[in-house]
Design a protein around this nucleic acid. Structure first.
Lengths: 169, 169
DNA sequence: AGATATGGGCCTGAAGCGGTGCTATTATCC
DNA sequence: GGATAATAGCACCGCTTCAGGCCCATATCT
C-alpha cells in the first residue's frame, strides 16, 4: 500500500509544530499540544535525532529543537529519516542500500532478477527521480505555513539535478 | 518504507511487455519471456483483471491482453490497482476508503485524531495531490517505449484537476 | 540530592507481504 | 464428446514490518 507510515505522519505533524514554535520543547509538552500519544512521539523524536533532523538537550529544561532552519528540511528528508531510502522499485535502490539490505536480512536476493534484460529500468528510474525531486522541493517551512506552491516548475534545474542524482546513486 | 511492493514492480514489467506485444499472451508464455515466477505472475494478472486493467480470455488459446490502449493506462492506475488507493498520510484518504478500511478491520480508528486542530492538513493534502498527479501523467506507453518526458510541466491543467479530485474524493 | 529530560533498549499483538498449491470452470482442438 | 489448456477463486504459511508501550540508564538543572 503506497503510503507513509503513521510514524512518519506524526513526525510531519511534530516537525511542523516545532517549526512554528521555534524554541526547545520537551516530548511531553509537544505530545500535549498536539494530542499525540507520548510513547510514540518519544520514539519518533529519538529517531529524528539519530537521523540529524532535530537536536536534543537532556536533563531538566531539556527537550528537542530543529537541527536546521525549516527552510532547509525537506519532505524527502523527513520521509527517508523515518522510513529509510525511498524507492519506487528494486532497480531504484542505490548500491549502498542494496548492500545494507543484503547484510541485514542474510543474503537474500535483493536485486532485480532481470537486470540486463529488463526493458523498463531506465524509464522507471526516471519516474523515481521525478517523484523524489518533487518531494525534495517541498520544505518544512512551506508545510508549516501552508505555503506549498500550487505549481512545481523550475524543472530546468531539476533535469541536471536529477541526472546527477541518478548517476551518483 | 516508502516503496512499491514487489508485486507492483512485476506488474509494471508485465504490463509494459504486454504493451509492446500488443496481442494476447498466456500467463505461462509471459512468465517465460520475462523470467518471472509463474505462480506469482498468475496472481498479479488475476488481480489486474479484477481491477479492469487487463482483459482475460479463458480456455485453450486464451490469455491476457491490455483492456485499454497503453496510452490510457497510467502509472497511478497500476499502483492503485495493485496496492489500493495511494495516500501520503491518513488525512489524504477519501471518505469511501475510510469507510472501507473501517469495515475491513472492525471499527478501529482510521482517521486522523486531530482532524480539526491539525495545522498541516491542507498543505499535506496538496503535496499528496502533486505526487498523485505526477504519477497520473506517466502512461504505460511512455514506460514501454522509454519516452517519459524529462520535464513534467503543464501544471495549469493540473491545478483544476487536482482541486476537482480533492473535492470528489 | 532530587526532579526532569533524553537515550537505548526490548517486547508484544496485529497486519501486510511474498510465495505456493489446489480445485473448479471455461474454451478450444481433435 | 473427450482431452487439453487456460483462467478464477480460494486458502494457506513463514516472514517482516508496524504500532504502541515499558523499563532502566544517563545527563542536566535547581
Amino acid at each position: 500500500m503506497f503510503a507513509l507510515t503513521r510514524k512518519t505522519d506524526y513526525a510531519l505533524v511534530a516537525l511542523a509544530a516545532m517549526a512554528r514554535l521555534a524554541e526547545r520543547v520537551s516530548a511531553r509538552d509537544l505530545a500535549d499540544r498536539l494530542s499525540l500519544p507520548l510513547p510514540v512521539l518519544r520514539n519518533i523524536l529519538k529517531q529524528l535525532t539519530q537521523e540529524g533532523l532535530v537536536s536534543s538537550t537532556r536533563g531538566q529544561q531539556g527537550g528537542y529543537a530543529l537541527a536546521r532552519t525549516p527552510e532547509r528540511i525537506t519532505v524527502i528528508d523527513l520521509i527517508e529519516a523515518m522510513e529509510g531510502p525511498m524507492r519506487l522499485t528494486l532497480c531504484c535502490m542505490s548500491e549502498e542500500d542494496r548492500e545494507r539490505r543484503r547484510a541485514a536480512s542474510g543474503g537474500e536476493r535483493h536485486h532485480c532478477d532481470l537486470e540486463g534484460s529488463c526493458m523498463i529500468r531506465r524509464p522507471v528510474q526516471h519516474v523515481h527521480g521525478l517523484v523524489r525531486d518533487l518531494l525534495s522541493r517541498v520544505t518544512l517551512a512551506q508545510i508549516a505555513r501552508d505555503e506549498v506552491p500550487r505549481e512545481m516548475d523550475g524543472f530546468n534545474t531539476f533535469v541536471t539535478k536529477s541526472h546527477a542524482m541518478l548517476g551518483a546513486r
